[in-house]
């Protein structure tokens, strides 16, 4: 495997940082976004108020930990790119996003600045991820375009930007959601190992559970989809069931053989299509960075012949860091 000189310069070994961000964001998603938001509506929750408050506090702490880790991870990518003497598209993308998020937080710029930075950063980070999965890059392309469209929706909805060019189209979100669902369904294309039974069974189980949940209580599940993943539920339940099942299969299949893929997909899911905050946009961008990161675990796959290539360095610097 050909390695990028910036990878060698980076010193590598920081995939654990992305892994830590995934763990923290996962806890935040489950505890803060899911449990505390739904438990408040359970009749009689006041009788277990103390455990509820402790759980909610743990979720908030996980949120802050995840925020710090996302900032540090993105900053690390930027820093190591600069240290390697490279200020390419990826560095521009991350610097743009971090700068816009910081300036917006401080009230120095309008909301549209941040929204446009997300669109631009996604498009600039996307080719590096596409290149890594070439030629089976369709799912990555679909994911990237869906997040770019979601960002475009946010960008055109704030501060009347559309008034300059006439009323902006309002159909970005359904298209973005369709692309996301298609990306999830197509995601098994990214798996480079032979199909294993456990991920297949778990994926089928996730699909079945999603389908049954959507049939049993479509309204409730759609609320949870919207809150947690930014999906409004425009399409029939079958598509979401297949999409979630396929995504679970892909993530589990690649967990031990292509960690960046599993982590990247997890970050895209945790970030969600809604892009409700700069934190969630940061998760998505970090997910794209992970997808473009060299695979340190690929050689552990049993199906790969005895190593004939140099062992790849591990780095947060994407493959096409130019």
């Amino acid at each position: 495997m050909t390695t990028n000189p910036s990878l060698q310069a980076s010193g590598g070994g920081e995939l654990w940082l992305i892994r830590a961000a995934v763990v923290a964001a996962g806890i935040e998603l489950v505890v803060l976004r899911l449990v505390t938001r739904t438990a408040i509506h359970i009749p009689g929750i006041s009788r277990v108020e103390s455990p509820y408050r402790v759980t909610a506090e743990m979720g908030r702490l996980a949120y802050y930990v995840a925020v710090v880790l996302v900032v540090v991870a993105l900053g690390s990518v930027l820093w190591r790119g600069l240290a390697a003497g490279r200020f390419g598209w990826n560095a521009v993308a991350i610097a743009w996003f971090i700068g816009a998020a910081g300036a917006t937080r401080l009230g120095l710029t309008s909301d549209s600045t941040l929204a446009w930075s997300v669109v631009g950063s996604v498009l600039m980070l996307l080719p590096a991820a596409l290149r890594r999965y070439q030629p089976r890059m369709l799912p990555i392309l679909l994911f990237g375009m869906s997040f770019a469209l979601a960002g475009l929706h946010a960008a055109t909805q704030v501060n009347g930007f559309g008034s300059i060019l006439g009323p902006a189209p309002t159909g970005f979100l359904p298209i973005a959601e369709a692309l996301t669902v298609l990306a999830c369904i197509a995601s098994p294309m990214l798996v480079r190992t032979e199909v294993r039974r456990a991920p297949l069974l778990i994926g089928a189980g996730v699909a079945l559970a999603t389908f049954m949940a959507l049939l049993a209580s479509p309204a409730t599940v759609k609320i949870l989809l919207l809150w947690n993943f930014g999906l409004a539920g425009y399409f029939p339940a079958f598509f979401y069931a297949v999409a979630f099942g396929a995504l679970a299969f892909t993530a589990l299949s690649s967990r031990s053989t292509d960690a960046p893929l599993a982590l990247g997909l997890a970050l895209l899911v945790f970030g969600g299509l809604g892009l409700h905050s700069s934190y969630q946009s940061g998760l998505v961008l970090l997910g794209l960075v992970a997808l473009a990161t060299t695979n340190p675990t690929r050689e552990t796959a049993a199906w790969i012949p005895e190593a004939s290539e140099p062992r790849p360095e591990v780095s947060l610097i994407p493959v096409a860091a130019g």
Partner: peptide, 22 residues
């Protein structure tokens, strides 16, 4: 990281900013 998160939590300073629609 944990200490930073705790400080942010206690001081209620959120580094992230909402991107909600306007």
């Amino acid at each position: 990281v944990l200490l930073t998160a705790l400080i942010l939590r206690v001081t209620d300073v959120n580094p992230a900013v909402a991107q909600s629609q306007s």
